[in-house]
Design a protein around this nucleic acid. Sequence first.
DNA 1: AGCACGCCGACT
DNA 2: GTCGGCGTGCTC
Length: 744
Amino acid sequence: MTLLQNTDKSSAIICVAVPVPLRQTFDFLAPQTGIQPQRGARIKVPFGSRTLIGIIVAVKQDSEYPIARLKTALEVLDTEAVFDEPLWSTLEWLARYYLAPIGEVLALAQPVLLRQGEALSPTSIKTWSLTDHGRSSAIEELNRAPLQLAIVKRFMRHTSLSPSDFKDESASWRQAISALVSKGWVEEYAAQPRLVVSRVEPAAELQLNPEQAAAAKSFVTAVAAREFACHLLHGVTGSGKTEVYFAAIQAALDQQQQTLLMVPEIGLTPQLIERVERRFQVPVVTMHSNLNDRERHLAWWHARTGEAKIIIGTRSAMFSPFANLGLIVVDEEHDNSFKQQDGVRYHARDMAIYRAKTHGIPIVLGSATPSLESYANALSGRYQLHTLGHRATSAELPKIQLVDLAHQPSNDGLSPAMLEAIKITLAAKKQVMLFLNRRGYAPVLFCSSCKQACKCHRCDSYLTLHRRAYKMRCHHCGYEGRIPELCGHCGAKELVDVGDGTQRVEDALALRFPEARLLRIDRDSTRRKGELAEMLELARAGEVDIIVGTQLITKGHDFPDIALVGVLEVDQSLYSTDFRATENLFQQLLQVAGRAGRREQVGQVLIQTRFTEHPIFETIRQHDFSAFAGQLLAEREAAGFPPFGYFALLRAESPHQAQALQFLRKAKQDLQPCAGVMVFDAIPAPMERRAGRYRAQLLITAEQRSGLNATLATWLDFLAHDTEAKKRANAVRWSLDIDPQDFF
DNA sequence: AGCACGCCGACT
DNA sequence: GTCGGCGTGCTC
Ligand SMILES: [Zn+2]
Ligand SMILES: [Zn+2]
C-alpha cells in the first residue's frame, strides 16, 4: 500500500497554469512531500529563474514534454480547489472564448493576496476597525494628535485595516493605533472578522404596481425553478427596477441562496448598499476597486463560505466564488464599464450569463436602455422580456424638445431658449441639470493669426484649455503644460479659446444667474476619491440649483428635484464613424432625459442641435426605445454587424510609425480565414498617435462565433511557434479584442 | 511579462 | 579595463 502510494506520487505529473502571458500550460513533477496535489489548488513552481504561484489544471501520469527535463514543483498550497466548479468551467470557457492565456485568466480571478500565496481563509491577521464609540466621537478631539486623526480618517474609507496597510504611514503608527485602542475608538482582533448584519433601520417592502408585480412574479418563479434562464427587464427611467430585483433576491434568500448583484463602477453607491441592507437584514458584502487587498480577500472569502447572502459588486465580482448561488442580477446591463478595456478584455455581463448557465440558475439583466445585443436576444425569444413602461411614482415621462442651433446660436454653449428655460425653472425653485460631454474650459486654443491650434506633442490631438488649474492638458495622454502667451508657431499674441467645455459653461452660468448655487461635476472636479459621491449627494439633497456635468451625471443616479435637463451638445456623436456611436448616443440621451421630473411635475428636456432633422430625435421625443432599437437592429442586420455578425479587433502600437501597421499587414497574410470569416485591411487607428505611440488596427468579422474563434486560435498557435512571426510580434505591443466596444 | 545572457559605447 | 545600454530568447 505504502509502496503503491509512493510510486503513484513520484510518477504524478502536474499540469500547471502559470501567470504569464503564454497561451499554454506547463508540466511539473509532483513534490515529494506535502499536500496531495489536486485540480484547482495553487502550487508553487520553479519557472525560469524565478518561482511563481500557479494553479493545477490537471494531475496526470504522462507528459508531452520530455520527462527527464521536467522540474519538480515546490509546494502545493491548498487542500481544496480555489474556485467552485461552475466558476472553474466559466474561467476555462472565458480563456477559450477570449483566446486569453489560461494562467492570466486564473490569476485575474483571484484576490491579490491569494496570488501572493496567502492562505485561502483570511484568519489570524491582526486587524483593527472603528468601534461604535469611535464612529460617534467628534473627530476634532484628535486635533492635537495628527497621526491618530489620519488613521481615523482612513477608517472612514475602509472598514478594517491591517499592519500592511500602514507601511506608507509614519513609523510611529503603532503607537497611534494603541492610543486609539485604549481610548476605545478602535478595536483590535486577531481572528478573521465575522460578517455581521449592519445595524440599519429596516425598510418595508414597497407596494409594486401591476407591471412591477408581473415581472416580480416571473422572477420569483424562475428562482424557485432553480434552472438557467435569462430575463431582460426593460424598464423606463424611474420605473422601479430595483424593487423588482428585490423580489427576486427575496426569493433566493427564502431558499437560503446567495445573490450576485452586479452594477457599473459608478452605480455602487452608499445609497444602494444602504437600500439593500435596510430591505433584507442579511449579511451583505461589496466588491469594488476601492477595497484594499485585505478587504477584497475578506469579501471574497465571505462569498465563498456563503456567509454573505448578497454580494454587490462591479465587473470583477463575477469572479467571486459562491457556496450556494441562486440568482445573478446585472443592473444597467448596457453599461460599457462591464467590458474590461485592458489585459483580458472580457465582458462581465456575458460571462455572468455563462456562469448562470453553469450554476443552473436564472439571471436578470436590467436597463432603461438595453444593449442591442440583449434586446435582440429578447426579441428572438432567447431571453424573456419584461417591460416596465410606466414610472413607479406615476410621474409622466419628461417632455423632450429640440433647440435649433442653426436658428438661434448659442453663447458659451447656451442658446437663448436654454437660458430662458433655466430662468423659469430657477424661478420655480426647481433644479436644472446641464449635460455637456466635454470637460475643461475650451477644447481648442487657436491662433487667429496663423490659423494653427495648440497641439499635444505626443498625440494627434489638441490640448484642452483648463481655466481652474490654469493649464493646457491633453485628455488622451495626461500631458500638462503652461498656457502659452504667444502662438507656438508664429509668435503672435492673438490666441482664441474656441469651443465650450464644462468650465466655460459654469462661468457663463455664474454671470447670468449670480444667485444660483452652481455645481460642476466632471473628472476634474472629482479628482479625490469619494468626492464624486459627495457631490452627487449634494445634488440629490437639493443643496444646489444648477448641476453642469459630463457623462458622470447621466448614470442612474436619482435626483428627485430636477425639473429641467439641458443637453448642450450632441452633434459630434450624430455623425461619428464608430458603429456603436448612434446606439450609445441614444442610450445616453434617454438616460440623461430620465433625470428630469422624477417627482410629481412633468420634467422638461431641451436638446441643442444643428441637425433637428436627424431621425434619432423623433424616437427620442417619443421615448420610444423599441422603435429606435428596431431601426438600428435592421441596419446592423443588413450590414452583418453585431449582434448579427461577430467582430474581433487586433490592435497594435509601436513608437515607430510603420511598425504597427506592418505587423498587422503580415497578420492579415498569416490569418487563414475559416468559412464566413472576413479579414479587413490593416488601418491606422482613428487617432493614430497617442502618448507617443502609433496605433493601428485590423478588423476581423465573421458570421459565426465558432469560425472567428477557430481562425484566431490557429493564427495565435502559428504566432507561438513560428520564430519569424514571434520576432515581429515582440517588436510591437499588440492585443486581441473579441467583441470590441468601439474602434478607438 | 520578467529575467538572464550577450555584445558594443563612454566612463573611472 | 568595466559599467550598463537594451536586442533576443526562453520559461515545463
Ligand atoms: Zn500663430
Ligand atoms: Zn497627448
